[in-house]
Lab assay of single mutants.
Amino acid sequence: MQRVNMIMAESPGLITICLLGYLLSAECTVFLDHENANKILNRPKRYNSGKLEEFVQGNLERECMEEKCSFEEAREVFENTERTTEFWKQYVDGDQCESNPCLNGGSCKDDINSYECWCPFGFEGKNCELDVTCNIKNGRCEQFCKNSADNKVVCSCTEGYRLAENQKSCEPAVPFPCGRVSVSQTSKLTRAETVFPDVDYVNSTEAETILDNITQSTQSFNDFTRVVGGEDAKPGQFPWQVVLNGKVDAFCGGSIVNEKWIVTAAHCVETGVKITVVAGEHNIEETEHTEQKRNVIRIIPHHNYNAAINKYNHDIALLELDEPLVLNSYVTPICIADKEYTNIFLKFGSGYVSGWGRVFHKGRSALVLQYLRVPLVDRATCLRSTKFTIYNNMFCAGFHEGGRDSCQGDSGGPHVTEVEGTSFLTGIISWGEECAMKGKYGIYTKVSRYVNWIKEKTKLT
């Protein structure tokens, strides 16, 4: 034993070699072989497995989906700052455009905790909710729209109204504003409101030439003092309507412009014939205590009207009353817009006519005020429907199939267009061939041609 100890002390290297040989010859039971080890760690190889990531292109799944990435790591994937920024906006807080917040056709661009709407022409605001041009839906104005110097929408209202708090709607500024039905039992019968379409306001006024200088022999019209197929109006439903009495009662109609003036057809009036105007009328054979009678003290036909040349060209006249009318729910003026808007309103496509005229061709006159909704007829169809001249200051309205029309005794009465609950004068009943005849239409004086003249002559002093 002493000898062994001496050998170990003198030859430590020998001992180490012996131990190493023993270990190498022993069977290893701690580690699995290569094949079995792979069965336990069965993990798919990654895209760049075996390579240094710093030297390969980034992978979106590896960089940002398996674990949260930084902007720089995302930049490695896209290799483009702009594309990385677009991805980053949604990656950080989701897609803010998912709810489609942009209105009126706006395009949404996502941002971090926010979004941006790219608005089409005519709109602005956070969600493109603000109209900035009158060309689109009248700028959301209830009545009139004008573009300011910086191309912003400025709404306005006709006389007797003021802008509401929203700067879009119009509200009454006087007790009985024009064009409004205020009798409670008839307010439910107000005709369907007309909503502004998209309009090209630059070209809204037709490029028409008034044929002022045409000389033409007097034409022989049949029954051209021209509501057939209409309905009984309720008291106060058309408070701007008046009836004219002269040699015979209810020979023509008219509309209240203001307390002192009536507008009617020029062919209705004769110099030297006494005319009485009755406002607030409903049943011409009954006294309903809503009527107001006034005498006409002055007749002003349009300066281009000449019955000797043509009885229905420039067929418009103004009547001055001896005493002002007292405005109330049964006696209310009709609204008159400017030339541009009167023309736009007419193009809405349908209007209402009213009167006490004959209820059928050569038949009896109506006792109760009649009204009828009539569609506008395109000019080409209008011209083809008659052998008589249709001037540019006239328009056609009615039904091709016949059966409904204005008729004798309705002449001078109103053709009105309702705009968001307020009625505007767009025409004056003038003439036609018979009444409600198939293929024939009622012919009306186009008020847009005469609004400046009306307003100039009827100013209240």
Rank of each mutant, 00 (worst) to 15 (best):
K446H: 05
K339I: 07
L319M: 14
K347H: 09
D410L: 09
E193I: 14
L383F: 15
I136N: 13
L460T: 08
E401L: 10
A233D: 05
R162Y: 12
V447M: 07
D249T: 12
R294E: 01
T16N: 06
C28Y: 02
S220A: 11
K339A: 15
K188N: 15
F196L: 13
S430A: 09
E142M: 12
A366R: 09
E116R: 06
S385I: 10
N147G: 13
K234F: 12
I297W: 04
C382N: 02
G355I: 05
L321E: 00
R294L: 00
Q143T: 03
F360H: 15
C128Q: 03
H314Q: 03
G357H: 12
E288R: 06
G421Y: 04
L376I: 11
V374G: 02
D212A: 06
I15D: 02
T209Y: 11
E72N: 08
H289F: 13
F78Y: 09
I344R: 13
K89D: 12
S329Y: 06
A265K: 01
F345T: 01
P333V: 00
H314A: 06
D212L: 07
K274M: 09
I136G: 07
N138V: 06
N147F: 13
E231I: 09
L103I: 12
C141S: 00
N222P: 08
E86L: 12
S365Q: 15
G246E: 05
E171V: 08
E79Y: 05
T84Q: 04
N127Q: 14
D131A: 05
P175D: 06
H267V: 02
D378Y: 03
N283M: 11
L130P: 06
E323L: 08
G442V: 14
P301M: 11
E193D: 14
Q370V: 03
K260L: 09
C382Q: 02
K457M: 15
R3Y: 12
K234A: 14
Y352A: 07
D338H: 05
S423W: 15
G125R: 03
N313F: 07
R364K: 15
S220I: 14
L103Q: 14
K152D: 11
A192P: 06
E73Y: 00
P333C: 02
C108A: 02
G236Q: 05
E27D: 12
G398N: 03
D131N: 14
N295A: 10
F123A: 05
N104R: 05
V154A: 13
L130R: 11
T276Y: 06
L103D: 12
C119P: 03
K311H: 06
V374H: 02
S220P: 14
L19K: 02
E340V: 10
T264S: 06
F176G: 02
I336F: 05
S184P: 10
I15G: 07
W118F: 10
I344S: 15
V174A: 08
A192K: 14
L20E: 02
Q237W: 09
K455Y: 05
E165M: 12
Q57Y: 00
D223C: 06
E98Y: 13
R379V: 10
D410W: 15
I15F: 08
Y312V: 07
C155N: 00
Y305K: 03
F196C: 07
R43M: 01
F345N: 01
G94N: 14
D110C: 05
A233Q: 07
N48C: 00
V447I: 11
S49H: 08
I214M: 08
I275P: 05
T290R: 09
Y115A: 03
D111V: 11
T426F: 00
G246Q: 05
V377M: 06
L376Y: 06
N59L: 03
H361Q: 06
Q57V: 01
F196Q: 12
H289E: 14
R358T: 13
S448Y: 04
T16G: 14
G427H: 00
K387I: 05
I17G: 02
C435G: 05
S107W: 06
Y330L: 05
N48E: 02
A26D: 03
D212K: 08
